[in-house]
């Protein structure tokens, strides 16, 4: 466990008061998923985000939802990809440029990139697990020489469920990155791999002793992927997963996000696999 001193500083002010931001751009990713770019509306802005952290996004008059940070820029812009899965995320998905949204955060511990310096990096994303990994990908690109081999495996249910499709094509053109994209099922328009994301693990190129794996996606996908990686010899301590739970407060008071001893909001969302392995194999934790 990390100590309080390691925790990133939260936004000053009332811990539950959202900071107004304005929607700058909106892009449709899939029929039910939208990417929004937001920027500070007034003088206040939230603290600098780290890859893997999340914020509470607030739709005025409707409520809040924890949403991963898919991009953060020094000028204060934030990128979020939201799937319409309820009242709040539905409202967030209907935002248009110029609309106002509330933000508080950033919260939690993200991907431990510093610890992974000098190592090979394997990123495995399932569905909407890619957005919280996106800032990590760009962090790797920015300090590419600090890392060994980088491989990204991205799986989604069908080709139309893949997010950042055009952006991924630019990643594919890089020669310092190995990219595997697979879908669970596809029509004839798809010429790529078909099979759940775990089917790509045997083909992944990594050396077990010097690889750190970052996993994000549905819980079952992360569990199966971690098992497949361990079966290939990767140590559970070298695997990190990003957990998702119901959240109201995001600062450890409301109790909703507990996962065993962890508050996903502040101990996570990124947790080391060996510490949660026993809980992931249980049901209804």
């Amino acid at each position: 466990m990390l100590t309080d001193a390691d925790r990133p500083a939260p936004t000053p002010g009332h811990p539950f008061a959202p900071v107004p931001y304005r929607v700058r751009a909106v892009a449709t990713e899939t029929p039910d998923t939208t990417t929004i770019v937001i920027e500070p509306w007034g003088t206040r802005r939230i603290g600098r985000t780290q890859p893997g952290q999340f914020v509470m996004l607030y739709a005025f008059g409707i409520g809040e939802s924890p949403i991963g940070v898919a991009g953060g820029h020094p000028d204060g812009q934030l990128v979020h990809t939201v799937r319409n899965a309820g009242k709040v995320t539905g409202a967030l998905g209907r935002l248009t440029p110029g609309d106002t949204v509330g933000v508080r955060g950033p919260y939690g511990h993200g991907w431990p990139i510093g610890e992974a310096k000098g190592r090979d990096i394997l990123i495995v994303a399932g569905g909407l697990g890619l957005p919280p990994l996106r800032p990590l990908v760009y962090e790797l690109f920015a300090r590419r020489e600090s890392y060994g081999r980088v491989e990204i495996i991205y799986g989604a249910r069908t080709p139309k469920d893949l997010v950042y499709y055009d952006e991924i094509q630019t990643w594919r053109r890089r020669n310092d990155l190995r990219l595997q994209v697979t879908v669970d099922a596809a029509g004839r328009e798809w010429y790529g791999d078909v099979g759940v994301v775990t089917t790509r693990i045997p083909d992944a190129r990594f050396e077990t002793g010097r690889t750190t794996a970052f996993l994000c996606g549905p819980e079952i996908m992360m569990r199966m992927t971690a098992q497949a990686l361990v079966a290939r010899g990767l140590a559970p301590e070298a695997i990190w997963v990003s957990m998702e739970r119901n959240m109201k407060c995001a600062v450890g008071f409301c109790g909703h996000c507990q996962f065993g001893p962890s508050f996903v909001c502040r101990d996570g969302p990124v947790l080391r696999y060996d510490r949660v392995q026993h809980l992931l194999s249980l049901r209804e934790v």
Binding site: G13, H14, F16, A17, P18, P20, R22, W41, G42, F60, T100, G102
Partner: peptide, 16 residues
């Protein structure tokens, strides 16, 4: 009650 928010021109303000 944690806070009250009021809609303003182009945004909103929050009073803790």
């Amino acid at each position: 009650r944690l806070w009250t928010a009021t809609k303003e021109e182009g945004g909103f303000s929050v009073r803790a």
